[in-house]
Structure formats: C-alpha cells, structure tokens
C-alpha cells in the first residue's frame, strides 16, 4: 500500500497539537521527545502496523509495539486515541487523578493499547524480546516493534537484551532508537557519550538501518525496508535521527524541553505553528 504522505502529515500535526495541549493542561510531562518522535508513531500506527484498536492483551496475529522510554507517553496516547483505541476526549485527563492516562504508560488502569508499564528506563527491549519469543512459540508470524531513547542506552539492561536477541535469532523484532542527542542533564555527548551507535549494534549482531525520523516518506520506506529484512536471522535496529521538540520552533533541538510544560503564552505560540483547532479533543 502506497503511503498517503499528505494525510499522514495532517495526522502528525494533530498529534503535535494534542501533545502540547496535554502537557500544558496538567503543567507536567515530556513534550520534547514526544514531538520529536511524532512522525515515527504516526508512520507506525497509521501505515506500518498490522493492529486492531479493539484491544486484546495477547495480540495474537497482530504486530505489537512497546515503548521503552515511557516518558514520551503523550505522543503514544495521542496516536492510540487518534487511531481508535479510546476516545481522544480522554487525553484531557492526562496525568490527572482517577485517569487511565497515567504520567507514564501503564496497564494497571487498563488503558487499551498498552501491554506493559514503562518509565523506569531500559526494560522495554527485554519485554519485547519475550513477546517476540512467544510469537515464535505460537507460530505467529507478525512482528514486534520497540522504541527507545538514546539516553536510555546508558542503562545496562539494554545491553543484556542486545546480546540475547542476535544469539537467539530473534528476527521478528524491529527496534528503533530516537537519536536526538539530548537527555535531562544536557547533550548525551556531554553527559555520557554513546559513541558510534551503528558500530555498537552491528558488533552485537543486529541488522542496522538509519533514517531521518522527522521525514515521513523516508521513515516509511525505512520501516518497510526493515519489514522486508525480518525473518532473516537477525533482529533489526533502526537508528532514527530526530529533533527533540520537532514542529515547534522554540522547543527544537534543546534538552531544555525534555520535561517542561509550556505556559499559556508558549502554548498559543506553539499551536499557531501547528494547523488549526478543528479536530482538537
């Protein structure tokens, strides 16, 4: 199926509106990474994934997605709501008491679309590998996708999982890293350099692809290339260059918007750059 880039671009703009509004209304949350990964989520949920918004935990016969860097929950919640998992109106309860839309993704309140809690970093790759192993045991030839932050790669558990997957030929797994070069305390280069990520993942035995994570057409062709390379004996890793805060000029490229909410004036300024309010929740 050929991607309708114009349509996907429109969805991405709506998702970015949702993100800044969600974070603004509770004055809490993580807009930077959410905006930077919006194009990836839109490509995945509106074009790539074989999924069913009539949610079922086991997801047999469906592609599964796991968000390991759970703090970019606003983008995931928006995309889940906009693709039919729940009413977008529920986004207004983000981070508020008695809500299913928790600060970090959780299963505890039974929000459709979430299969495991994340937030404490470094755990999602292992969980996804487990789900991929279950698919193999069940003779289910659908795929498992994961997303990770680049700062998250500083967690040791990631590298335990990185060793395991190639050794065990977990080739129904397509992971991605949001390479935005930023983390809470500053640029990753300054905080704890990640070095040559392509060389690292290749040395661990992964099939590594690279893409611009803020170009929908390139993203989709990379994800489709990744799918064509599944089931060939290696797990796949997509290194995805993104701009933190992409789509809102004053939030772009800085770690300062990792976990800070815009004020009223900044919200207005951001929304003015992001289409119109016709389909706001």
């Amino acid at each position: 199926m050929k991607a309708d880039i114009e349509k996907l671009t429109g969805i991405a703009t709506q998702v970015r509106r949702d993100i800044v509004r969600m974070v603004h209304q509770c004055q809490s949350g993580h807009p930077g990474g959410s905006l930077g990964c919006t194009d990836y989520f839109v490509a995945l949920y509106f074009h790539v994934l074989k999924h069913n918004p009539d949610f079922n935990m086991d997801g047999k016969g469906e592609d599964l997605f796991f968000l390991s860097n759970g703090h970019i929950s606003p983008v995931w919640y928006s995309v889940l709501a906009r693709s039919g998992y729940f009413d977008p109106k529920e986004l207004a309860t983000f981070r508020k008491i008695n809500s299913r839309v928790q600060g970090h993704p959780a299963t505890h309140e039974h929000l459709p679309g979430i299969r495991v809690a994340s937030g404490s970093l470094g755990q999602g790759l292992s969980v996804a590998i487990g789900a991929a192993l279950a698919k193999k045991l069940n003779n289910d030839d659908s795929l498992v996708y994961t997303l990770h932050g680049d700062g998250e790669l500083q967690e040791g558990q990631i590298w335990e999982a990185a060793l395991f997957a190639p050794h065990n030929k977990v080739d129904n797994l397509i992971s991605a890293i949001d390479v935005n070069g930023q983390q809470i305390d500053g640029p990753t280069e300054k905080v704890l350099s990640l070095g040559n990520l392509r060389a690292k993942w290749e040395a661990f035995g992964w099939d590594v692809l690279e893409t611009n994570g803020n170009d929908l057409a390139e993203l989709i062709s990379t994800l489709e290339l990744a799918k064509s390379r599944a089931f060939k004996g290696k797990p796949i890793m997509i290194l995805m260059q993104t701009n933190m805060g992409h789509g809102v000029d004053f939030m772009m490229g800085s770690h300062k918007w990792h976990g800070v909410a815009p004020n009223d004036e900044q919200l207005a300024q951001a929304l003015a750059q992001l289409g119109d309010s016709t389909n706001d929740y």
Binding site: L125, S126, G130, A131, A134, Q157
Partner: peptide, 15 residues
Amino acid sequence: ANMMGMAAGLTIGGK
C-alpha cells in the same frame, strides 16, 4: 534483568 523482562513479555501471547 533481561530474564525478568523477557518473562513479562512471554506472558503476552499466553505463556
């Protein structure tokens, strides 16, 4: 750590 995470993932799919 990887073992505990994979065990959690294996339950998704009914194991």
